[in-house]
Amino acid sequence: MIEIKNLTKVYKLTKKQMAEQKTKRNIKKAADNISLSAKKGEIYGLLGPNGAGKTTVLRCVATLLNPTTGEITVCGCDTVKEPKKVRESISFLTNEIKLDPQFSPKYMFNFFGRLHGMDDKTIDERRELLFNYFGIQDFRDKKINELSTGMKQKASIAVSLVHDPEVVIFDEPTNGLDIVTARSVTDYLKLLKEEGKAVIVSTHIMSEAEKLCDRIGIIINGRKVMDGTLSEILKETGTEDLEDAFFELYKEYSKEEA
């Protein structure tokens, strides 16, 4: 469903960004020759520390950024050549993308449903389903800027799924949520997997990756240093749990930069 082949993404840095990132080079290789695939009916996890390049990879998959080199296909469609088809079949959630604060979750849901070309009846059915699952009904008519972080995140998730997409791309979906809300999100991702969707999530939380993901790709400094099921990774690194495995890899690969 998602095929990433030799993805490299290079950002050109402004003077200000160079100072912020304490680098003398005016380019930043945020993704370095990454290849991976996520299939129907599985959850693929991108695990890596802050700044590893997870968001960059997912934005490329979501057609918001074009790969510098390499290519990505989603449901067989190239993200650069057929971005419209890709957008029809994906849901993309990331914390920099927000819902209009002056509208209610219900208005936003209907609005995006119509932008996806859905009719009102289908939109209503989807809304009942998702709003009931995430407990949004109580605040569906409140303005988004009056909602708590957790409520906003639930609304964002529901809206991003309005068109019942085949591929779900969630960038750190539990970030900043309390454990109850976080649990309802990860439970829903499992439900989506059972429905046969391809799910790709990013996280820097080891336990989440361990429990949620069928396969895990570990990203350090823009490079995918290993991927596989949890047991494959533990076997390969000769460790007991994911955290130990991660630090083994981190010791090995984080030095290589410079």
């Binding site: 057609t63 918001l64 419209k84 993308i97 932008l115």
Partner: peptide
């Protein structure tokens, strides 16, 4: 304003031209 608030990107994610 929409760019800064992060609401423009959500529109760019729809199949709209």
């Amino acid at each position: 304003g929409e760019k800064e608030r992060g609401t423009m990107a959500s529109m760019l994610l729809t199949p709209l031209n």
